[in-house]
Amino acid sequence: MANVLVNAPKTAKKGEIVEIKALIMHVMETGYRPGTNGRIIPRNIIGDFTATWNGREIFRMKMSPAIAANPFVSFAAIASESGTIAFRWSGDEGFVAEHQVSITVT
């Protein structure tokens, strides 16, 4: 299982703007670097990151080789209803990581 750290408030008022932070362990190997044997190390990056709130997409990001290892993403969302915020990272070499948190909106 991938190593993920997600930080989102557990409760929010309806209509409030909440900050969501997501950090994931990943090498983000660019595909441009030669290894110790002189050969190019194959690209191995996360390509897509998405977040959904009760199944509805609230954030999407395309990642590129210029993004450093262990990418950190922070974004804002409007708290509309109680439920689940789900995160998904996917990329090269069949990489998939999923994580979810619940939030109560009053």
Binding site: N3, L5, N7, K21, L23, I24, M25, A69, F72, S74
Partner: peptide
């Protein structure tokens, strides 16, 4: 300072 942004915290979790 922000444990949600400090990448070292991924290693702490491990």
């Amino acid at each position: 300072d922000d444990d949600a942004a400090n990448p070292a915290m991924l290693f702490v979790q491990a």
